[in-house]
Structure formats: C-alpha cells, structure tokens
C-alpha cells in the first residue's frame, strides 16, 4: 500500500494505473516489507515528496526515475551513430595534430628540444630572467627522469591551447558584435565551466574509441576554451567608446575597425584569456589521463591507483613546475603587449 494510492483512486485513474503495471523490478524496500510480512505504513513525518518513484509505487503506469537515466542513455546511444558520422571526420585533424605533436616533442632529442623551447620562450617574452627560470625548471624535470612525460603534457597543451585560441577568439568576436549571440553563448560557457570535468569524459568515451587522441583533446578543449572566449568578448566590449566613435567618424569599415582598433586594443584582455586557457588545459590534461591522455597525469593516476605516494608527489610537483613556467611565460608576454601600447 503506497502513500499516493488514494490520489489515483479519487481521480478514477486506478484502471489506467493497473493496466500499465507490469513486471517493473521491485525495490529493495518493497521486497523487505514483503518478506517480513509487515505492511509498510508511513508515519506523517515520513510523508514522501510526490516524486516519480513515490508515484510509481501508487501507480504502475508512471515511470521510475531510473527509467529517465536509462532513457537518456538509450537516446544518446541511438544518436551516437548519426553523431559519429558528422563529428568523427570533423575532429580527425585534432587526432592527427596531437599524434604529430606528441611524436615531434618526444622523439626529438633533448639537446635539440630544450634549446628550441627556450628560444621560443625568449621570442615571446624577451626576458632572459624568464628564460633562465624555464631552463631551470625543465632541467629539474629532466634530472628526475620526468622529461618525456613533461614533453607529452606540453605537446597536448600546445595543440589544445592553440585550437582554443583558433576557435575561441572568433567566437568571442562574434559575441562582442551581437548581444543575441552573447545571450546564446554565455549559458553554454557557464555550463562548460561548472560541469565537473569528469562529466565531459563520459559521453566522449561513448562517441570515440579510447585509442584516439582526440578523445582527450576534445575534453581539454571544451574545458579550456571558456576563458579565451569570455575575455575576447569582454576585451572588445571594453574598448574605449570614444575611440570607436572616432573610428566611425573617420569612415572606417567594420573590418578596419575590428582589425585596426578593436582587436589591438583588446589584446591585453585576449592575452589574459589565453593565459587562463593554457592553465586550464594543464588542469584538464591531468584529469584526461583517465581516458588515456599521456603525460604527467598518468603518473598521478598511478600514484592514486597503486597508492604509490612518492610517484604521485613527484608527478604532482612536476605539474606545478610546468604550471608556474607556463604562467610566467604567458604573463610576461602579456606585460610586453601592455607596455608597448600602454594605458590610456
């Protein structure tokens, strides 16, 4: 006897309910009640919320909550093949890029790779201090034999951050130009930002084979793209209205305004977004190691799985070192841009 029986009886829906009642699996509570022989009478304090499960007890035709989650899964599986036809070829270049980058960065001998990286750092920051810092960090990592893992992690971050900028900046520009676009995109960004990172991985595992690098590539990009989109939009919207008016008054076209005024003036904000994007892709690369992303994350995962404290700690330290290096380099690049066009 369930709580809401009376409701369905008075509404005259009893026939409809029982007609649909079938061999829906019995809940453990029911089973216990049946075997113990006591009718489970509910006291006033236990009066249940009219949830799907509670209603199902009274009326078999109403589905249980379990059916909802199962329905979602079945729906996704039904969609999967169609989705694959579209998404698979679209994302194939990502797999290819990740594979190539991983290959290049791990197969190039260290005595070539390290100088190239340091030159890159100098080109971006023009600061020998930062170059020294990065050299020290990489040397420490290499000294404790984490060089290969670090390169794998870096390779994934480079590719993913690059694609984030490639896609994120144009989306941000579109958002800054149209309020409607902004209204549509912001909830999506909010969702991407608040969804627990593990949740990205589940549907992706269904969609792609675990051997494909794009599986984790997409997860990293989805997670890390948010700040660059947000800050591009914000940066362009924050460009001094007076300067925009001057550009209009002198007859600039939309494109002249965008490339000659808005983007250059929004660049400090866009670069701040790139910095955040890089940091977030580093965070996600570690989590993505659960779905076969190589790199330092694998070691962290091993540390957790096998309770190897030392392995986990050293790998974790390596990630911190990489994070500091990446942050300092991008911040120095940002400061350089800021200084060269300075404040109003």
């Amino acid at each position: 006897m369930a709580t809401y029986d009376g409701v369905f009886d008075t509404l005259g829906l009893r026939n409809w309910c029982d007609g649909g009642s079938s061999g829906a699996p019995m809940s453990m509570a029911d089973l216990l009640a049946q075997t113990s022989g006591t009718e489970n009478t509910t006291s006033f304090w236990d009066f249940p919320f009219p949830s799907l499960d509670a209603l199902h007890d009274a009326c078999g035709a109403i589905p249980q909550t379990r059916d909802l989650t199962q329905g979602l899964e079945a729906g996704f599986l039904a969609l999967r093949d169609g989705l694959r036809v579209v998404v698979d070829p679209l994302t194939q270049p990502l797999s290819w890029m990740l594979r190539e980058m991983l290959y290049v960065m791990t197969q190039t001998p260290w005595f070539i790779m390290l100088p190239v990286l340091l030159l890159l750092v100098y080109a971006v920051t023009r600061a020998w201090k930062i170059v020294g810092l990065v050299a020290l960090f990489l040397a420490i990592l290499a000294f404790v034999d984490h060089y290969g893992y670090a390169m794998e992690t870096l390779a994934i971050i480079f590719v993913c951050a690059f694609i984030c900028v490639l896609i994120g900046v144009p989306i941000g520009i579109l958002m800054s130009r149209s309020d409607r676009m902004q209204r549509i995109v912001i909830p999506i960004l909010d969702m991407l930002q608040t969804l627990p990172p593990f949740v990205y991985l589940i549907p992706l595992i269904f969609l792609f084979s675990v051997t494909e690098p794009k599986l984790y590539g997409i997860a990293v990009i989805l997670y890390a793209i948010v700040p660059v989109v947000r800050l591009t939009d914000l940066g362009i919207r924050l460009v001094d209205k007076d300067v925009i008016e001057a550009a209009d008054a002198f007859g600039m076209t939309r494109n002249q305004k965008l490339f000659g005024v808005q983007i250059p003036l929004a660049l400090p904000n866009i670069m701040a977004g790139v910095n955040q994007t890089i940091m977030m892709s580093l965070a996600m690369v570690v989590i993505a190691s659960m779905v076969s992303a190589p790199g330092l994350g694998i070691l962290v995962l091993r540390g957790i799985r096998n309770l190897e404290l030392g392995v986990g700690l050293v790998a974790g330290f390596g990630i911190v070192v990489l994070a500091i290096a990446l942050d300092r380099v991008t911040k120095a690049a940002l400061a350089r841009i800021d200084a060269s066009q300075s404040s109003r």
Partner: peptide, 30 residues
C-alpha cells in the same frame, strides 16, 4: 562612409586618438 572619409572630419573632447598607433599614424588615420 565616403562623406565621413573625405568631406567631414571630427575632433573630440576626449581626443579619441588610437593609443596603439604613433602620433604620425594617428594624424594620417583618415
């Protein structure tokens, strides 16, 4: 646009120069 480019120019209260361009580039903006 042609009118704004060729027959009407404007000077603003808050100057509204392009901060990332040199003085020369600003002067030649039109």
């Amino acid at each position: 646009r042609k009118l704004r480019r060729e027959s009407m120019s404007m000077v603003f209260q808050k100057f509204a120069l392009l901060p990332h361009r040199t003085v020369l580039e600003n002067a030649g903006m039109a």
